[in-house]
Amino acid sequence: MYKKKSVNTDIPLKTLREMYLTMLRIRKFEETVASLILKKEIQTPCHLYIGQEAIATGVCTSLRKSDYVFSTHRSHGHYIAKGGDLKKLMAELYCRETGCSYGRGGSMHIADPDIGLPGSSAIVAGTIPLAVGVAYSFFLQKKDNVSVAFFGDGAVGEGVFYESLNLAALKKLPVLFVCENNLFSTHMPISACLANIDIKKTAETFCIPTARVDGNDVQSVYKTAKKMIENARKNKGPAFIECMTYRWYGHVGPNLDIDKGLRSKEELDYWMKRDPIKKLERQMIQQKILTIAKKKVIEEMIKKEIDEAIAFKNKSHSPEKIDIARSVFKEE
């Protein structure tokens, strides 16, 4: 049967639509979270993913449910892209018992093992060796699954980054390292942190396939990640992808940090013009894959999902004080 494909890419239309939906779902969810932080409803420190949606989306769309991804302090996008439930995520941001981490984790510790997201860590680079360990488990058990480590450019300052790349390369493990280079390590421009800001080149020293892609172009991310993931499944070892991007908000919370002298309005404007969602949207509309009417339908659907997530949160209780020490250990 003839399979419909978009005009200038070889990505199936269904996949493009799926990626558009996922990116928009992340964007709208994060915008809602930002407004709820401003209203002082959400207390847990949230590191918002707006501006970087194409990366989690492009990578996770290339994965199976049984593949594992590890996230970071900036976790919401990865959770949603891997198929997480908005209700459980919203409940976790309110630290409710019904949250995806039972109100024990908060924004920086999001997990759902059933979707292949065993967790996210607030320690920069802390989950990189965990992804290598999952890959080692797949390797020992001869499974054709892969694991993915998401991390930011700031993680390249940590020693465990280098140790982990070396171990994975040494043992040819099925792991994809995804560096989301948003040009900042907390408040510091990455050029003030790294002697060599060419992170792809740093990764090349481990003799593994590497690529640098436009992290605001979901199709580039998807195609590059897909190829690397397929290779990893065929025991061709790890790969590294550096995705160039920009976070619209500050390191944490819904502020832009422009007034604090950390970055210029011109810089932010430049990147907002390169909005990853608008980029795909323009192309899809041009190619008549998406219409304004259809876009409205999608937006309505997402709004409904978010409303339902808030309603779910409203019905949910906080954890009971008596359970303060529950789950310190797994009991027999």
């Binding site: 594992y68 590890f70 065993p118 967790g119 802390g126 990189i128 060796p129 965990l130 992804a131 290598v132 360990g133 999952v134 890959a135 080692y136 488990s137 797949f138 390797f139 020992l140 694991s147 020693g159 465990v160 140790e163 982990s164 070396n166 171990l167 040494l170 043992k171």
Partner: peptide, 28 residues
């Protein structure tokens, strides 16, 4: 050499590798 893995001096990543594998039900 895979079930008895002699490693480089990378204590942090080697321990993390064990933790990650344990999350999938292995017993490192």
């Amino acid at each position: 050499p895979h079930r008895v893995f002699d490693t480089p001096v990378s204590e942090n990543a080697v321990t993390g590798l064990g933790v990650g594998a344990a999350l999938t039900g292995m017993r490192p």
